[in-house]
Design a binder for these strands. Sequence first.
DNA 1: AGCACGCCGACT
DNA 2: GTCGGCGTGCTC
Length: 732
Amino acid sequence: MSGLVAEVAVAAPLDRTLSYLVPEALVSNARCGMRVRVPLGRRTATGYVLDVQTGAVDGLKPVIELLGSEPAFPPAMVDFFRRAAAYYQYPLGEVIRTALPAGLSGGNHEVKALTERIYQASEMVGMPRGPRQRELLDYLRGVDCVARSELLTVFPNCQSSLRALVDQGFVLEGQRERLRDPFSDMTLAADTSVDMTDRQAEVFASIDAALQQGGFQPMLLHGVTGSGKTEVYLQAIEQVLRSGRQALVLVPEIALTPQLVSRFRARFAGGRASLAVLHSGLSLGERFDAWRSVARGEVDIVIGARSAVFAPLQRLGMVIVDEEHESSYKQGDGFRYHARDLALMRGQMEQALVLLGSATPALTTYHRACQGKIAYLELPQRVMSRPMPEVELIDLTQDRPEGILAQALKDALVANLERGEQSLLLLNRRGFAPYLLCADCGEALRCPHCDITLTFYLGQKELRCNYCDFRQPPPDQCPACQGADLLPEGAGTEKLEQELQELLPTARIARMDRDTTGRKGAHQSLVAAMEKRAIDVLVGTQMVAKGLDFPGVTLVGVVQADNLLNLPDFRAAERAFTLLTQVAGRAGRGERPGRVFVQTYAHEHFALDCCVRHDYVGFAREELALRQELGYPPFGFLVNCVLSGAVREQVEAAAEALVAELLGPAMDLGIEVLGPAPCPLARLRGKSRYQLLLKASTRPPLRHLLTRMPVLRRALPGKVTMTVDVDPLDML
DNA sequence: AGCACGCCGACT
DNA sequence: GTCGGCGTGCTC
Ligand SMILES: [Zn+2]
Ligand SMILES: [Zn+2]
């Protein structure tokens, strides 16, 4: 019997695609790229049509129904999905499910017409009595009108003062509809190309030449912080559009702000090009709409975070990966892809230019550029001849702080506040203190589900695990020895904020970390307040280093560089150098030059030294030499296999059995097997974890060995699961 | 991943 | 005798 057969990738962990009969009624619409519902064993599942051909249909089950009326992705992407699935050794159907936006089922176009309260200073002159009220009123008189949520992030716990101001008539209270699409609201100051510096023009000329030449053109744009990479991107996009092709712009999730999007919108406003934003901040309906219009070919420019690398563009001319070193491009669970690496893969398959931009390229990227595999473009100077900030190390063995901040940094903060300029402090620890220690036995309180100490939060008066959702009120006595003295040890952003309030009682201080930016829009409010200069000192975790451009910031302090350098990971130095250079780059982006202080006990570490000298190349040279010695990336390739399960002994036994299976074939292929060893985070969410690391000097043998994984996975005892991470970024 | 089948211990 | 434990294997 012959008929129409669809090859379907089912969204389930199967290691091959399945064939289904296309029933008569669906023949006209069953095309490549369609989502379908298919029978799978005794149940049904979602699948994706990869191909439709005539063939033998004996024993095939029929497709049940088509989901949606048009394809979710163009046929050309099928090969891209297949290659990505093979590279990361992940089931094809799951790859495609990850690639497509959640809620593709459509239909759910609910509009939440929420309102929010807004406040604005009245005409009334004079000043209220309370100092807190004066402060609030000052702020409100300086801005137009402000939403309650935003006000609360700038002035925490200001409700009572605010109420008083409203009652006295100093402040007017109103309501407005909360905006559904945070990106649609921005006013578009019609923007045109800016004159580029000679250096920008040179870089653009190279990109333009590559575009004219056509084909796969990987390029690295290495431009220091504030060197005007975005203008180069914009002009390159114009050039791509002129040739009738489309552009895809990837930015880190945290940088995908209304400001950024409006800058692109403004440039291409007035019907010159249509732009879509793919963003998790959109509602399901909005994301569906955006995706569908891209798939229909109605969009010339797509901007999005990691998952936008799968945008269903059909005439892709260029992919820009901004801040290509950013670790948020790597998906941390499930299909663990790296958007930059997939951008290169896709660019190669679709003959596109791939432009990777960064002030601190990932060493793997830089190394590829040195080898000539990627063209190297450089913007070594800031625009307007602005100087790079002056970076100083504070040797904590000499300048011993009483609290968290050394005297030199305190003095600089006080002076900066007096000048009315903004400061930024980086401390990579959330909460008040990373430990609660027993004064009697010295034991720290630990998470019952994870092998890690609990963090003490003063604001919520509780202990929390930063790795799972465990929380508990601080106990009265030590669980180990019943001692009564439990003391916070070490410092987090909360404590830093407190110390700053004592040092600078008049300053407006705000904190930015995962705990203050959990709510939607909270991060954006902080950024806005910072831009309006409603904040004098912003303290936060690495979030404060990520792509923010505050012209008013002239002082940056790094409170503990050491805990970046001391992570148990071969990439610790690279991450530290990158983070320090990026946060230092937040200083002096406006008219006034910037200064940076880095507190450390390891003042002789080469990563710090290079950061002080703004010497990326020097850092890269030294670190690459170390990597080469050890055979680590980019001189070797890694695959991390993590086994986990509730019973430690079972996991360990499974890990050992797995190594025994792998060792022979690995040896034959010239692959090193390291481990098994407990993961650095040996227990997580109640599961014990063992890892084994596969290391090879070239990729093909690794890929060959990975093809055995499905078999080995099936041989695992039932209670133990394995995740495979190709090109792991961290190995916790 | 589900969801079967299947083969052993302890319950009405 | 059957109810249910979860090991093993398949899904067009
Ligand atoms: Zn104790
Ligand atoms: Zn935990």
